[in-house]
Simulated assay, not measured.
Amino acid sequence: MKWLSLVLIFFFCVQSFAQFNDSTHYYARFASTGVINKTDGANSYVWSNFATYNIDKRKYFLNTAASYIYGENDGGLTNNDFATTASFDYLKKQKRLYYWALVNYDKSYSLQITNRLQAGVGLAYKFIQDSTGREDFTISDGFLYEKSNLIDDKLGKDDYQTVRNSFRIRYHFTIKDILVIDGNNFFQPSILDISDYVIKATNTLSFKLYRWLSITAAQTYNRVNRTERENLLLTFGLTIDKYF
């Protein structure tokens, strides 16, 4: 059987970030990835976009981010997912133990989330602390209030509120200025029912070709156990960054 598979991947990033220091306080990035697969019997594609803007001051760190994923398979919709988040870290650069606050809003066709809002606070501890920003390993925990409107295959629309424990492992390692490993992974069970949990995992591996150019592989996984829905996205592409 004759077949043709075409994969087009484009990953473009613009960064206003060197290492945060006394004269560098801002960081912006935009990424766009796409995957197209065509065979004699099937056609599918996924288009993913991500943008972030950070502010790093002496006592606080503010991160804002937004993402949008759209996908189709044989003309049928598979992804129409939007998420935006803002997180605030206080005393992150001064102490190993610091405070965080988070607000997150998302909607997802693939996860059957009509609307979901999360807001909460907690503590984080840096097990590995590097002033140059080359290495970081942080564990955080806290509580989130969540208000959601979901679509359950059996119950239909599911409007509910809950409080979740939000446990996160975050890491960043630079190996010999060539290999960069990043991860941001959440486990969020409801304090009322541990079987009602949310998993969010994003991990990337970048290999630097030049100081400003890298080959990047990224993995994103989400699960909403209340509705037994999950998605997994793997992308490959190029990262362009510039420090100033």
Rank of each mutant, 00 (worst) to 15 (best):
W47C: 02
K57H: 06
S5Q: 14
S190H: 05
L232C: 03
T227Q: 06
N225G: 04
Y68I: 04
S48K: 11
L117Y: 09
I199R: 08
F207N: 09
N79G: 01
T174M: 11
R223P: 10
Y221I: 11
L97I: 08
F88P: 08
T33A: 12
Y68E: 05
M1Q: 06
F17E: 15
G237H: 04
V198L: 15
V198P: 05
K242N: 10
G34M: 07
Y27H: 10
V224I: 15
I9R: 11
N43F: 01
T84N: 14
D40I: 00
L117S: 04
S214G: 04
R168W: 01
N185G: 05
A218D: 07
N80E: 12
V198E: 12
N165D: 05
D177F: 08
G237L: 04
F20W: 13
L150P: 15
G120K: 04
N165H: 04
Y60K: 05
N184F: 03
F17M: 13
T114N: 14
V121A: 14
Y60W: 09
K154R: 11
Q112L: 04
K157G: 08
T52I: 01
D22V: 06
S140W: 05
T78Y: 01
Y160C: 15
Y70D: 01
Q161H: 07
N231D: 10
T202S: 14
Q19P: 00
T174N: 05
L150T: 12
D22R: 14
A83C: 02
D40E: 02
T162E: 11
I169G: 10
D177N: 07
F187G: 08
F61G: 00
N80L: 07
G41E: 02
V14R: 08
L155K: 13
K147F: 02
V103W: 00
F82T: 10
I113V: 13
D130G: 06
Y53K: 03
N203G: 06
Y105V: 00
V46R: 06
L179T: 02
T138K: 12
